[in-house]
Design a protein around this nucleic acid. Structure first.
Lengths: 153, 153
DNA sequence: CTAGGATATATGCAAATGCATATAACTTAC
DNA sequence: GTAAGTTATATGCATTTGCATATATCCTAG
């Protein structure tokens, strides 16, 4: 493998390892009794949206298959955390948003979770390093999205 | 949330998003017909070890629960990719290593996968950025491990 | 306005996962 | 040497996941 390709693989592996290590750490925190991490991911993503969004749109932002997400939404609706209604402008689609209970749950879980994240990240990094990491990761994300847009066009 | 905690959370979220985006990209590549990504993760981890390792040791490096890993190893043994034998020095434990077939499978899948990783990473980053990312991610990993060691002591 | 195709979501089903716990083997104190 | 405690892995069981495909709605050409 040539040097640049090797470097690319090593840096990806480092990201993968850091991610896994953090996930394990965060999974162990005593915060996931009411909602699981995956459920929280959905609630958090919805909490960032001012408007209700489509299932497909949500699916673009949550790393789950469409059927898995569809059923997870089922369960969250069942539990009164998410509201689902048919899109009036296109009856195939559904619009998803948090209920008040869902917003409350996201906030309380999110608060505790954010504390753990902050503790762990600040233990490893100073402010400048966190900013560097953010810049790099966002660059990767943006570049990926651009590539998808190019392919989709 | 104070500024430093906010920064910590934003940088973690950026890493999480970059990871998710990459995973989705890599999952879509036409490389996982013979072994799934999770299976490959196990084969790759074993391929990096010169000696057979314990299930528990493997579990420390693969993000799966112990029972899930135990069963995944079952399946890989069944398929002739992994060799499992009782540890002679401690009959509770098992020692795991790749078979020749397993090594071959890891190499061929790994080659194709590494190409995709390299293409995607080099599309987003120059060499210096990849090195920066590596430095930061490794720092996070090392700091996590140190924290675990402190807690375990 | 209708047939054929496209798109959004849901469902059937087999497989994988996690939690709790069982089993097997080691270790230590007596 | 043996009972009590500990550690390493495996199993029972309910849940979640993904793949393939069904269903429902929309769009477009004629």
């Amino acid at each position: 493998m040539p040097g640049r390709a090797r470097l690319a693989n090593e840096s990806w592996e480092s990201l993968l390892t850091a991610h896994a290590e953090m996930m394990r750490q965060l999974a162990g925190e005593d915060v996931w009794c009411e909602v699981s991490r995956t459920e929280y991911d959905v609630l958090y993503t919805l909490s960032k949206c001012r408007q209700p969004i489509r299932l497909g749109e949500l699916n673009r932002r949550v790393l789950l298959s469409q059927p898995a997400l569809s059923r997870m939404v089922d369960r969250l609706v069942e539990r009164g955390l998410v509201r689902r209604e048919t899109d009036p402008s296109d009856a195939r689609g559904v619009l998803l948003g948090l209920t008040e209970a869902g917003r409350g749950q996201q906030r309380s879980t999110g608060r505790a979770h954010a504390m753990n994240v902050a503790r762990t990240m600040t233990a490893a990094f100073d402010d400048d390093e966190m900013r560097q990491l953010m810049t790099l990761c966002r660059k990767l994300t943006v570049e990926r999205e651009a590539a998808i847009a190019r392919a989709g066009a």
